[in-house]
C-alpha cells in the first residue's frame, strides 16, 4: 500500500484513525474534568495559572 498514491482504503483508515482519536480525546477530556469556563477566560494560558 503506497500512501503517496490515492487509495480508498487509506482514506477509510485515516477517517477511522480520526474517529478513534476523537473518541479517545472526548473520553479523556470528560475524565479530566477541565473547567472550560476558566480555560476560556484565560485565553489559552490556562496551564500557567492555578484553577
Amino acid at each position: 500500500m503506497n500512501i503517496f498514491k490515492f487509495n480508498k482504503n487509506i482514506l477509510v483508515a485515516a477517517v477511522l484513525i480520526f474517529l478513534l482519536g476523537a473518541i479517545l480525546m472526548f473520553i479523556s477530556f470528560s475524565a479530566l474534568g477541565f473547567n472550560v469556563q476558566n480555560i476560556l477566560s484565560h485565553l489559552g494560558s490556562w496551564y500557567t495559572t492555578e484553577f
Binding site: A13, A14, I17, G21, L24, M25
Partner: peptide, 15 residues
C-alpha cells in the same frame, strides 16, 4: 487526551 488529539490531527493529515 493528547494521544487522541494527535490521532485526530494525523487522520486529518492523511485525509
Amino acid at each position: 487526551f493528547q494521544l487522541g488529539v494527535a490521532l485526530m490531527l494525523l487522520g486529518l493529515g492523511v485525509i
